[in-house]
Design a protein around this nucleic acid. Sequence first.
DNA 1: ATCCAGGGGTCAC
DNA 2: GTGACCCATGGA
Length: 296
Amino acid sequence: MRILLPQPPLFSFSECRWFLDRGYDECLHRFEGDTIVKTVRIDGAPLVFAMRSQGKHLVIEILHGAPGAKTREQLRSWISGWLDLGRNLQPFYAQLKAHPRLAWMAKDFRGLRLIGIPDLYESLCWSIIGQQINLAFAYKLKRRFVENYGESIRVNGTRHLIFPLPERVMRARVEDLQQLQFSRQKIEYLINVSRLIHEGRLSKARLEALPTAEEKHQFLTGIKGIGTWTANYTLMKTLNDTSAIPHGDAGLLNALLKHKLIKDKKDKAGIEKTFRHFKGWEAYLTFYLWRSLAVK
DNA sequence: ATCCAGGGGTCAC
DNA sequence: GTGACCCATGGA
């Protein structure tokens, strides 16, 4: 009962693996050789799948979860969004190759896709958890969050963690989360977002229904704990908006400095000038710039 | 020891 | 609308 997904042009599983396997303590997926094993929720139900690249396809196997036709189709669609498989990267590569300082990335990172976080709740929680702290610590906090409030599923003797449901986090005790080294603000934001999602006042569908990026941005920043960085990060990672820029992002600024595209971190003109060459592909440029921090 | 982390809210001016 | 301050802790 395998699912086959054709690999689009300008897609490289090994390039995408860079992001998925960067050495951080990721608790929602892991690699076993060339195979990634990941947990997701499909219609709220936990599912564990394995995926590897084979020839011209991605081969997916469901290890846990109802393998019905509907689930398979939903998983296929989920993975397509996660790896941004439906995107034609040709225009982005044309712009990238024309850039005097960054053209090399088109060759060196060829086939790297914007790896997303299709689940809005997971995306917002991760943004809140990761705010202001270094990534190693952020992954530690995420693991504690998932281990304490999520579910765990055993497949062939291995334990797999499933991201928590908002209803559970909504009822979490502040003291318990403080024990896990969450700051009072992060706890407040997490519980509040959990409530909004659980009550249906905030959902991916509701967000997608808003006609413009500005309205989506406004809707998100109206929520406590979600500022301009998180709003744009969400548009980029969850709604696959290739025009979104996570303004103020530390990694983005460091990469722009590294490639001498800005003179300091307040150089708004330099930032604007750089992104002007990548209209419609700002999120991809950002993702490639993050990638560039890991080389040389 | 000091500064920065894949920020955001609050408050003073 | 801008800037100082706080949150909390880890890592370099």
